[in-house]
Design a binder for these strands. Sequence first.
DNA 1: GAGTGGTCTAGACCACTGT
DNA 2: CAGTGGTCTAGACCACTCC
Lengths: 265, 265
Amino acid sequence: MTMATKYDRIADDLREQIAQGTLRPGQQLPPETALRDRYRVSLVTMRRALDELAAEGLIEKRHGYGTFVRKPRQRVVRDASRHQWEKERARLPHAERFGTGATERDTGLEMKDLDFRADYSVTPASEDLAEIFGVPAGTKLLKRVYRTKPKSEEYPLGLGQSLLVYDVVAENPHLLDSANEPWPGGTQAQLYTIGIELGRIREQIIARPPSASEAEQLGIDSGVSVFDLRKISYDINGRVVEIADTVLAGDRTQLVYNIELDRWQ
Amino acid sequence: MTMATKYDRIADDLREQIAQGTLRPGQQLPPETALRDRYRVSLVTMRRALDELAAEGLIEKRHGYGTFVRKPRQRVVRDASRHQWEKERARLPHAERFGTGATERDTGLEMKDLDFRADYSVTPASEDLAEIFGVPAGTKLLKRVYRTKPKSEEYPLGLGQSLLVYDVVAENPHLLDSANEPWPGGTQAQLYTIGIELGRIREQIIARPPSASEAEQLGIDSGVSVFDLRKISYDINGRVVEIADTVLAGDRTQLVYNIELDRWQ
DNA sequence: GAGTGGTCTAGACCACTGT
DNA sequence: CAGTGGTCTAGACCACTCC
């Protein structure tokens, strides 16, 4: 066994107590000064040990209030079958689509339990985005920023943004007005009104620490990860129709994908 | 504008210089003591600013040697189509399978460029695992721990563990001996030898901070996220055949899934 | 106002690297 | 060996939260 640093040994000790249940979820730890005295180290060293645990998401420090053992959070399962599910509902009459968006399906909540906000704007396509859409750089894009928050929670599940080619969507002027949100049935129901059927969806996922602004908006501290998910929707002709970027709180989300395999001959 | 801390302003300044190219990838930064004098702060504060940048992966500190601007890390794309691809190769003759595992496909490297290690052991099934496998708790499982590392890199891409029901695999004694690893073509080729064809794969993904041990093994800072991916393999009869857990460095990996949608009638 | 965590300092000493 | 980053200290003062 190699010699560990003081802060590592202190962090190990506290980790162990959390694992054993000696320190329970939600419980407040003694003040840093008290812990410093208990472990007979300097305050800086004691704080460093606590910072390690905070980075692992095991404890949560609240400035001016105290340090607490983190409660493991219930994760919302986001199953990729949501896309097929949404597609099948896109052509249903309004009444049947109502209150049955993909988010509602994931969370088990109804639309009346959710606070919904959408902000529309128009933006020129950057080089990167234009290449994905297969259009010239600078092409007008409709940018829609979404926030969906369960009324029972303080913070949204994720920060979402969707991009569509403006001239494509403009065929149906209703789609250009955020006042028509939430649109029951979601984006695929909207695309149906302009004759677009999706054939394939590609999802690219990155895991990273949140930026300061994301941490604040999602109500997580910097010791938690986020999913950074880009969804690219292709119509049945292979044209890119939508690019949607979503940032999901890592401690509240689980992603699920099912891959069907072709049979051997 | 809110007042920032000293270390934030120093980190911002250095971030800017890296972004502008004033500091170039691979370039060595001045010693901490010199930077401390330049920014007129204490050594602790200076180090904290550098630690921020290290956590973001912008710089790399080498004990006793120096601090360097990091060359941007390339993300290995792990596309879920690897499973279908692997399946099609599972029945090929040994020579054609050789050097064509899914990891090699992801990284573009050949088997000779990879260091590979596998440790086999036998373990009784916990309640949770037994339920997924659909067997009684305590059933013997073959546990295989994998490490795959590009020879050109210092650290492995991921930490992997695979579980199989022992009595199922025992039909082919070769599969019980880690000395036969790496098995060209991967697990599906191994399962083929005992007459098992996979029909479906389910992947469940979580994003979280690494534990101290994971951070060390993967060579990432505790300020980087990891993917925690569980792959459950079903045979063509719907029976669970394998449960594989993998921890992937978040700053070196991108996950990709393609979802084909059924046509409207 | 009392109690908590956050920032910052000046300086000692240790551990690692390359020549 | 010289030069670098890593650990640790004792103590001052600031900023936030709650009552």
